[in-house]
Write a protein that binds this DNA or RNA. Sequence first.
DNA 1: CTAATGTGGCTCATACAACGCCCATGAAAT
DNA 2: ATTTCATGGGCGTTGTATGAGCCACATTAG
Lengths: 112, 112
Amino acid sequence: MPRSVPRTYSSYCRDATALLGGLIRTARIERRLTAQEVADRAGISRGLLQRIEKGDLKCEIGAVFEVATIVGVTLFDADRAALPGHLQQTRDRLALLPKSVRSKAGKVQDDF
Amino acid sequence: MPRSVPRTYSSYCRDATALLGGLIRTARIERRLTAQEVADRAGISRGLLQRIEKGDLKCEIGAVFEVATIVGVTLFDADRAALPGHLQQTRDRLALLPKSVRSKAGKVQDDF
DNA sequence: CTAATGTGGCTCATACAACGCCCATGAAAT
DNA sequence: ATTTCATGGGCGTTGTATGAGCCACATTAG
């Protein structure tokens, strides 16, 4: 039952995706790669690449990140080699946190 | 014709997604929010949130970014307010680049 | 100029992601 | 100890994102 309501996004979320798409497009052109070339390399269709560069919110994150990797856009601003380290670090931190959370339903800020 | 072959991803891409998922989970727990709470707020199902936190590569980037926004994980390490500016900046840069690219088909590095 | 090619934007068919609902486990609170 | 409830995972259904193919237009090379 995959969603009967269109789904909504915060503007920050939309901006972030659009920015990522723009960065990808910029990087691709600067490296003089055709859309088809990148699409093939990423194992996706040219149409999907177009949507990614346009900042379409409904693309697999895997496809987007893969393309970003290919054209040389760094995620997290983090050094490529440093990523696995951060990953382990995050896993360790998670191990220390409580397994489940009791919600006190305290009001939280919600201004996007 | 949505893909007959499973699709492959680079390890960097997998790591990045897993890291993002971990950061989201960490942030959620630290803020004492239940999975259901966050899922509702993001307008997604609890199951999808689970996959996002696990770093599943096949989730809409919109859903992932939305959740990240909600639990307070910053994308791009960039300041939240600064994002629209960067967006415009990227658009301007794109306007200066060539509209299309002639591939010289020069070999490119491909080591991930 | 012309030819070649990259791009954007459609349509269509279909594999599959997301949903809702279920149960089992285990942590937290009483 | 007992109850409450968050979590992880499975299953069946269905809306939808994806890939393929096409076209028209723009851009670059020759």
